[in-house]
Simulated scan of single mutants.
Amino acid sequence: MADITMYNLPGCPYCAKVRSKLDDLGLEYDVIEVPRSHDERTEVEAVSGQTGVPVITDEANDIVGMNESDDIVDYLEETYA
């Protein structure tokens, strides 16, 4: 199990942006696919307080429920680049 977990919706361009950065940095991460319906996204809501994606957690750095793709990409670059 990797330290980083990403909550992802297939076909989401913002999720693709974050996954691309994770891959570019060569980071290991787990992916949790979320349902299309926001009403069914209880797991990501419990982690982040909202139902939008992408969301990441990073246990190594006590990051829980970070959202907004630009913020996530900036965090990954600052922390792992």
Results as ranks from 00 to 15, higher is better:
Asp3Ile: 00
Ile4Tyr: 12
Tyr7Val: 11
Tyr7Asn: 04
Asn8Glu: 12
Leu9Phe: 10
Leu9His: 02
Gly11Glu: 04
Cys12Lys: 07
Pro13His: 12
Tyr14Trp: 07
Tyr14Ile: 00
Cys15Arg: 04
Cys15Glu: 00
Cys15Val: 06
Lys17Cys: 15
Val18Gln: 08
Arg19Ser: 10
Ser20Val: 00
Ser20Thr: 12
Lys21Tyr: 05
Leu22Arg: 04
Leu25Ile: 07
Gly26Asn: 07
Leu27Lys: 04
Glu28Ile: 06
Tyr29Val: 06
Tyr29Pro: 08
Asp30Cys: 04
Asp30Leu: 11
Asp30Trp: 04
Val31Lys: 15
Ile32Pro: 11
Ile32Asp: 06
Val34Gly: 01
Pro35Ala: 15
Pro35Ser: 11
Arg36Glu: 13
Arg36Phe: 14
Ser37Ala: 15
Ser37His: 14
His38Phe: 12
Asp39Thr: 10
Glu40Tyr: 01
Arg41Ile: 12
Arg41Tyr: 03
Arg41Phe: 11
Arg41Val: 03
Thr42Ser: 10
Thr42Gln: 09
Thr42Cys: 03
Gly49Glu: 05
Gln50Val: 09
Thr51Asn: 14
Gly52Lys: 15
Gly52Ile: 15
Val55Asn: 01
Val55Glu: 01
Ile56Asn: 13
Thr57Trp: 08
Asp58Pro: 09
Asp58Thr: 09
Glu59Lys: 15
Ala60Glu: 08
Asn61Leu: 02
Asp62Lys: 06
Val64His: 14
Gly65Gln: 02
Gly65Phe: 03
Met66Thr: 05
Glu68Pro: 07
Ser69His: 11
Ile72Val: 01
Tyr75Met: 01
Tyr75Ser: 03
Leu76Cys: 08
Leu76Trp: 02
Thr79Gln: 12
Thr79Ser: 03
Ala81Gly: 06
